[in-house]
Amino acid sequence: MSAEWQEKLSDPSKIDKAFDRLGYISNDRIATAVFLAQQLTKPILVEGPPGVGKTELAIATSEMLDIPLIRLQCYEGLDEAKALYEWKYGKQLLYTQVLKEKLGDVMQGAKSLPEAMGQLHSFSDVFFSHDFLEPRPLLKALEAENGAVLLIDEIDKSDYEFEAYLLEILSAYQISVPEIGVIKAKIPPIVFLTSNNTREMGDALKRRCLHLYIPFPDEKMERRIVAARVPAAAESLRKQLVAFVHALRAEELKKVPAISETIDWARTLLLLNVSELDVETVRRTINVLLKFQEDVEAVDRQLYKFVKQAKEAV
């Protein structure tokens, strides 16, 4: 870890203040998790409902340390070739064609078939060297000269088999390439794995990680988040819209509004020059918060109540 990293990550309170300057509103638990992850050289498994800032945490850490963010988006069927590395087969083929005329020189002096095969085998090994290796996100993070933040996003969407690929990386910060050997990180990346809890993670993966759960924030913290991201919004409007969103989250909706949607709604209301909530404005803009028509219809039946409660919160 560089001296600059050590200074920026030397205390949870420093991390919290640095996040705040970047517009990422954290808390003691989040800042302490990032501190411990670096001090213990362990990844963080960040769980919680969609839209609470799990991915943003990795982005903010990358900005805070001024190092690259390398992101691997997980999905069902993700395999080693897309996540770790693959061979540059096109380049191998091109070089084979170019060097075909040299094949006679390689075979020269061979007095038997086994001897010729041995010479040919040593020639073919050249094509399975690091020069012909195509790094994917995991290998790129290990090979980053000045370190990196590695974001393995939505790990719960991948297969159990893919978790097995990760175990060596998450424990030793290295990978084994059969044709080359072990490739170890020069500077271990700071690793964040995010999960929306669509499936349970395996015990082996969990043992290798620190655990951090980020829930939806309370109203006070969400107002701070909106203030940081939409500073032009008046305090009274922030209180009303956050109170309204929290009322929606208490309902049995197909998809409750995420923090990012609260921020988008605040920006929407500013664009419309809205200074306080009213039923018609909310009805016109509710599609910014709710993404399913059945949710829109369910909320519309109680819209007067929700708007009244939100305005009373000021």
Rank of each mutant, 00 (worst) to 15 (best):
L93N: 08
Y85K: 01
A81L: 06
F123H: 14
L72V: 09
T96A: 12
V98I: 14
K82S: 13
V98L: 10
Y89I: 11
L65T: 01
K100H: 14
Y95P: 03
G104C: 06
L113K: 10
K111T: 11
K100F: 11
L78T: 04
Q73G: 03
E101C: 01
Q97A: 04
D125C: 03
Q97S: 11
Y95H: 15
K91V: 09
I67F: 11
K100G: 12
M64K: 08
E101A: 06
D79H: 03
L65Q: 02
L103D: 05
G77I: 01
P114S: 05
E63P: 13
V126H: 07
V106K: 01
F123W: 10
G90P: 06
V98G: 07
I67H: 05
L94R: 13
L72A: 03
L72W: 12
K88D: 13
E86R: 11
I70C: 02
G90C: 03
L72N: 08
P114H: 03
P68A: 02
T96K: 09
S112E: 04
D125A: 05
D125S: 05
K88I: 00
Q108N: 12
G77F: 00
Q108D: 15
Q92H: 07
K111S: 13
E76D: 08
K102I: 01
M117L: 15
Q92Y: 08
G118P: 12
A83F: 10
K91R: 15
L94P: 08
D79R: 06
K111C: 02
P114R: 07
Y95I: 02
L65C: 03
D105Q: 13
L65N: 08
D66H: 10
L99P: 11
S124H: 04
H121W: 07
C74G: 10
E76P: 01
Q92N: 11
Y75D: 05
L65A: 04
V98E: 15
L65W: 09
M64R: 07
L78W: 00
G77Q: 04
I70M: 06
M64S: 06
G118A: 03
D125I: 00
Q73H: 09
G77L: 02
I70N: 05
K102W: 10
G118Q: 12
L120V: 11
